[in-house]
């Protein structure tokens, strides 16, 4: 599929952000989204489905999302499609956690 993820050769991308002494993850949520994906793919859906799920992001969102924002989107999409969790449960839990804060 010729989607926004097919980036090889795209023009006008600018300089590559090379970081010195880069941490493996920039934040705790990024580490967690990776770990939760790693723990679910293979057990509940194949790893290739995870990549495909991020490619199913609407193109404009795909291009403006960060790497782990795409992983988070893919994780949510797959755990809801595979009925491990419902979207309503996610929204409800977010509201609850925001209130507890």
């Amino acid at each position: 599929m010729n989607g926004p993820h097919d980036m090889g050769g795209m023009h006008n991308m600018g300089p590559i952000p090379i970081e010195a002494d880069e941490p493996v993850f920039h934040s705790e949520w990024e580490a967690k989204v990776f770990a939760m994906s790693f723990a679910t793919f293979g057990n509940y859906f194949p790893v290739d489905e995870t990549r495909h799920a991020s490619e199913r992001m609407p193109p404009a969102q795909y291009l403006s999302a960060s790497y782990y924002e795409r992983w988070l989107y893919a994780l949510e999409l797959l755990i809801t499609e595979h009925q491990l969790v419902t979207q309503a449960e996610i929204e409800e839990r977010m509201a609850q956690l925001a209130q507890d804060r």
Binding site: E69, I90, R93
Partner: peptide, 28 residues
């Protein structure tokens, strides 16, 4: 926003027994 979504997902996946409280540490 992302941190809050991840926190909600983590709490739901633990509650449903899909991951445990140790999953993140063990994967990393």
């Amino acid at each position: 926003v992302s941190a809050a979504r991840v926190k909600a997902l983590e709490s739901l996946l633990i509650e449903k027994g899909i991951i445990t409280g140790n999953t993140v540490d063990s994967v990393l």
